[in-house]
Structures are given as C-alpha cells and as structure tokens.
Write a protein that binds this DNA or RNA. Structure first.
Lengths: 203, 203
DNA sequence: ACTTTTGTTAACCAAATGGTTAAACTAAAT
DNA sequence: ATTTAGTTTAACCATTTGGTTAACAAAAGT
C-alpha cells in the first residue's frame, strides 16, 4: 500500500495539495491536512510555497490551465460543425470523468473571486471560441443548419456535459444508482448529448 | 438607506446569515461577518442559535427546503408532458433568477457532505419524480413521444436550467456581456430550453 | 577534510476564530 | 417601586490555524 513512491518533496506537496484543495476548497483546506496527506512536516509547505494562498494559486493554475484549453482547442480544428460538436462532447465528458471534482472546484473559484479567476485563467487573451461561432453563423447563412444563437448552442453543450458531474450525489440518490450505474449513464450521455445538440440544428 | 427596518434580532440574524453563507459558503463565512451584516453583537448569534453549525443548518434547511419542492411539484400536476416541461423550465429559471447564489451553494453542500445533505433535504421520502417518469414511459409506449431514457431527459432539463447560473461570470466574460445582457439571454432560454427538450421527444 | 548550501524537523508564535460569561440594560409582571 | 425574565454587550477564553525559527541532517562545493 506504500503510496508515496519516490517523488520529490515538492511533488508530494503538489499532489497532496491538489487532492485536499479539490475536495475541501480553499477555505475548507487546512495546511496540516495537506502536510499529513503528503506525509511531511507542515513547515515544508511554506519552505516550498511561501503561503497557503501561493500554494493554492499554483494548484489552481495547474488545474484550470490543464482543464480548459485542451478541449477548447477542438473548436479551432478544421472539422465540420457536426464533427466538432461530437468530439467536443465526448472529449469533454472523458476529461471530466478523469477528474470529477474539477468542475465544482473551478465553479466555486469563479463565483467567489470572479475577476481574479478570469485574469488568472485567460489573462489578456479570450478563449478561442471565435472560430466555431463564425463557422456556425456561416453554415446558418448557407442554410446548412437551422438558425440558432451560437452562444446558446455552446452553453447548452457545456451545461449538458458538466452539470451531471457537479450534481452526481443527488442524481445517484434520486435514481437509486450506485457508482457503476452512474458511469454507465455517463457513457450513454457521450452519445445522447451530441445527438441532442446536433438534432437541434440539423434541418 | 436604512436597511434594518424593524425586524426582530432573530430575523436580522437569519437574513444576514443567509446572505453571508450563500456568498462565502460554510467554511468561508465568519461569525463576525454575520454579526456585522446584521448590525448586532456576535454573542447574539450564539444566544439564538447556539453554534455556527446549528445556524448553518437552519439556513440550509430554509434555502433547500424552499427551493427544491416547489418546482418539483409541477411534475405531480395533471398537465400533459409537454406542458409540464414548459412550466418546469420557466418556473425553475424564474426561481433561480430570484436567488442566483442558491445553486452553487447547494451543489457545494451536496459535494462536501453528500449523506448529510440527502438526509436533511429529502429525509426518508424520495423527491416526487416518479409520476413524470411513469407518464413519459406511458406516452412512449403509446407512441406519442420518442423513446428516450426519462432520467436522461430530466437531467438534460435540469442541466440546461441550472448551469448557466453557476457559470455566469465565465459566460459574461467569454461573451462580453454585462449583467443586463446576461438577463436577456436568460429570458431567451425560458423559450429555448423547453423547445429544445420538447423537440427532442416530439415525433 | 571542511565549509556552504539545501532540505527537514519540532517547537514555537501571533492572529484569528468559535464560543462563553458576567454584568448591564430593558420591559413587562407583580 | 420592585422583582423578574428576557435581551444585549464588552470582555474574555481556548483552540485552531497560518506562519516562523532555530537547531539539525544531508548534499554539494571547495
């Protein structure tokens, strides 16, 4: 059961901090929790990362920085709209499935410190959502797809992909599902969600 | 600008506690914050509510108890499926719009203390989601609507209604919207969301 | 070999925080 | 007018918590 492998102290801290911050949030996390989880002395946290806030920022930057751009890049590709929608949903759901606590973690930060978040994650440059929007507008004019607000379409897609994960415990209760059944349902959604979205714009 | 009207101390505390807990969460809220917001001495919080946890439980019970059942009742009504979907979406979005911080507040509690939450909110009795599901299954067999998993349908509806509110700050940034424009978009969604859902099951 | 730098620990510290207390105040009941 | 019960306050308390320090160990230079 020896979990700690042979990581450097810094890596152990980052791993532990990620776990604790993700599950307890900034305010709920205790430096001692993180130290215990990493199996090291609490002073090391400050030795490597100066303060709790600094450590949190580092984790947040890693998590958000790894989470958002990877999938948004799909919109930049040269695929057709339909194909983009499909890959986006599948890839996004896959990614969340690997780290299911990330969405609620990020949404919290978004709501508690909106400005800092936006600056931290996007900096000056906006997320690359322009291309897919133009593509949608173009195909609408050409009469290939129905006329819908591109923003609403993207928002729908996001909602349908993300929400089930932040609401998982209630869903499981109401539907009487265990963890496995929940996963099967998520698998289903990888087909259902893109189908729903695509059907809504297909002529 | 005199905000405090002539409420009893207990009411002032509850009002202040709701505001602080909703915006900062249980861990982020300070008893002193609540006292200040209520314009009273910190000791009064303990005089009326014994402890921080007790006060939080009270607020949570009020918020969740008022939020969830009201709308779920729509499913119990005698309307047609289409009508139910429409009223549910409109009413749900309306209700969230009045208290936009409630969803993230509840979702947090759901994820941090799943068992306690579920017990607290639903007790022994499940939410009344049985009727609409049966209704959906029935109309499917009768061939009135397409064959879809009722649970996925409900989940889709919930996702589309709730998610925009918990993601509001990012949405505003990416779309370059101010608060008014965001509200207009939400208004739009009251029509779009039920339409999307209904179209997905209409034959 | 020794010095210096880096990594690590236990003990400690000051501030913050949830909670308590005893006294003061208020208003109704006697 | 006096008692009594409920209400409010300032000061206080114990614990928790983020952060520091000084001593110590282990590498890394020299």
């Amino acid at each position: 059961m020896g979990k700690e492998k042979d990581l450097t102290t810094e890596q152990k801290i980052l791993e532990a901090a990620r776990k604790i911050f993700l599950t307890k949030g900034l305010d709920g996390a205790r430096m001692q929790d993180i130290a215990d989880e990493a199996g090291i002395n609490k002073a090391m946290l400050h030795y490597y990362f100066r303060s709790k806030d600094k450590l949190f920022e580092q984790i947040f930057a890693e998590v958000a920085g790894h989470f958002l751009p990877k999938v948004l890049a799909i919109f930049e590709s040269e695929e057709t709209v339909f194909k983009k929608i499909e890959t986006f949903c599948i890839e996004y759901i896959n990614q969340i499935n690997e780290t299911p606590y990330v969405p609620i973690f990020i949404l919290n930060e978004i709501n508690r410190h909106p400005e800092e978040f936006l600056k931290k994650v996007f900096g000056n440059k906006m997320p690359p959502v322009g291309k897919i929007i133009k593509q949608l507008e173009k195909e609408q004019k050409q009469g290939i797809i129905k006329k819908v607000d591109p923003l609403q379409l993207l928002l729908n897609m996001l909602s349908l992909c993300v929400f089930p994960f932040v609401a998982r415990p209630v869903i499981q209760l109401i539907a009487g599902m265990d963890r496995t059944q929940f996963n099967t349902m998520i698998e289903q959604r990888k087909k259902e969600v893109p189908k729903l979205i695509i059907d809504s714009i297909k002529k």
